[in-house]
Design a protein around this nucleic acid. Structure first.
Length: 470
DNA sequence: ATGTTC
């Protein structure tokens, strides 16, 4: 495979074979160690009908279902461009929410154990059913799928102000609940307000560095402050929707004369019954993911209020697994594009009209969850940007789950976290071994490469005081 | 990511 360094932090794969556009990978050589398979996936994505500009990959690129995780691909809706469930991934609308406490870390420290014990009891997590809130029936689930965080707030699980700090005001408008299958609904009903497992978490963190004081101040964070970060998605509901619609598209592709280099790229035109059906169901899952994070915030707020009388204010909520119809210039002309971001975060520039007014001039907040025991970041969108205003989403795996679990035992991990002064409340220590930080890239390097590539800028760095995981 | 192999 031929890939050349165009400039620092930017590599290019020239089109060849079925590629319609080049591959552009933002990274360093170090971050691309053993990335052959995921770069092969960047090349596959470049063959999608209607793809424009390039098949992009972020510094946290790793191997995924069909598309790489850390991939961005935009297709021209009005030129037969396709939508592909694999370009969003199984965990539709997986994303991150950051809340800031009205407490400084030093002042908070003595209460950490009580807060963590409270969270341990209050936060449902791990595989399978269980959630903080059970809809009273199929009708209420439908209202939640249509209304997202907005519906959760209407039902008393949050503050009206929260919605101002959510991407899309807490709900995407184009959810089509009729495209959510029965099985997805059944799975979704029992998991509203739950973390799930794997790299999902709820952390109590402390701001250790602020790189951009005006932006941090506007976002509502300052040095030393205690925060809560929630990383989770749409659980079994999103997974089932992806499964169902991949199957439909896999069968329908030939009718549209579409061939793709890998069946896992199953797709149909955005403007087709199958494409519209997927996007409608995906939007419903997006709203489920947002309601999920809203309800977990509500549960965390109750713990903080009872244990220490602290308040939590929403900084921002943003997804990193989503396809969106957005307008961007392509070759000097404004085009309606279906932008797939899979393990990539939207990073709108300063002044973008969709950003909340009080933070608009600083660019969109981007929330980067670290791995177990490591730092997390708040970034912001920049004026020029690239890849349709996208940046990284996290550290990115380098080891399989199985491989990771062999490198460390649960009790070793327990000792390491205790020595680092991090209060961990896992569902199982054994399960935590799959998430050992050696199994991931260095999040500091990923963020440095993203900033170096001109995709975003650093606003703040946070470290964990306590972690709740599946 | 996932009732972790329909």
């Amino acid at each position: 495979m031929e890939w050349v360094e165009e400039r620092s932090f930017r590599y290019r794969i020239e089109p060849s074979g079925g590629m319609r556009v080049p591959g552009i990978v933002f990274a360093t050589r170090d971050l691309l160690t053993d990335a052959e398979q995921s770069l092969e996936q960047v090349i596959h994505v470049a063959a999608l009908p209607g793809i424009v500009a390039a098949s992009y990959a972020m510094p946290d690129i790793h191997w995924g279902y069909g598309f790489p995780i850390g991939g961005v691909a935009a297709t021209d809706v009005d030129a037969g461009g396709v939508v592909s469930p694999g370009g969003v991934g199984f965990d539709i609308s997986c994303g991150v929410r950051l809340l800031a406490a009205d407490r400084d870390g030093d002042e908070f420290r003595p209460a950490l154990t009580a807060v963590m014990d409270g969270l341990d009891r209050a936060i449902p997590r791990g595989a399978g059913p269980g959630g903080v809130w059970r809809p009273d029936g199929p009708g209420e689930l439908e209202r939640l799928l249509a209304g997202g965080s907005r519906y959760a707030v209407e039902r008393g699980h949050g503050e009206e102000r929260d919605l101002l700090r959510c991407e899309d005001g807490g709900a995407v408008a184009d959810a089509d609940v009729t495209q959510v299958g029965q099985r997805a609904r059944e799975r979704g009903l029992g998991q509203v307000g739950s973390l799930g497992s794997a790299n999902h978490f709820l952390e109590v963190q402390q701001v250790t560095e602020v790189y951009d004081v005006p932006a941090a101040t506007a976002f509502g964070i300052e040095p030393g402050q205690v925060c809560v970060m929630i990383h989770c998605g749409s659980r079994g509901l999103g997974h089932q929707i992806c499964t169902d619609h991949v199957r439909v598209m896999d069968r329908a592709m030939t009718r549209y004369g579409i061939t793709v280099p890998d069946r896992q790229l199953a797709c149909t035109p955005v403007d087709s019954p199958e494409g519209r059906a997927y996007l409608g169901a995906m939007a419903a899952a997006a709203n489920y993911g947002r309601a999920n994070r809203q309800l977990l915030s509500d549960a965390a707020r109750a713990v903080f209020r009872r244990a220490v009388g602290a308040r939590l204010s929403l900084v921002y909520d943003v997804s990193h697994n989503l396809a969106k119809i957005e307008t961007h210039p392509v070759a000097g002309r404004c085009r309606r594009l279906c932008v797939h971001r899979k393990g990539a975060t939207r990073a709108f520039p300063p002044g973008h009209p969709e950003l909340p007014e009080d933070i608009r001039e600083f660019g969109q907040p981007v929330l980067i969850p670290g791995t177990l025991g490591t730092a997390s970041y708040v970034l912001a969108g920049v004026p020029v940007g690239d890849a349709f205003h996208s940046t990284c989403h996290g550290a990115g795996r380098t080891m399989s789950r199985h491989q990771a679990a062999r490198t460390v035992t649960g009790s070793e991990l327990r000792v390491r976290l205790r020595q680092a002064g991090i209060a961990a409340r896992p569902k199982s220590w054994r399960g935590l071994t799959e998430e050992t930080p050696e199994a991931y890239k260095d999040v500091d390097a990923v963020v440095a490469a993203s900033e170096g590539a001109g995709l975003c800028r650093k606003v703040a760095r946070l470290v964990p005081l306590g972690v709740v995981k599946g």
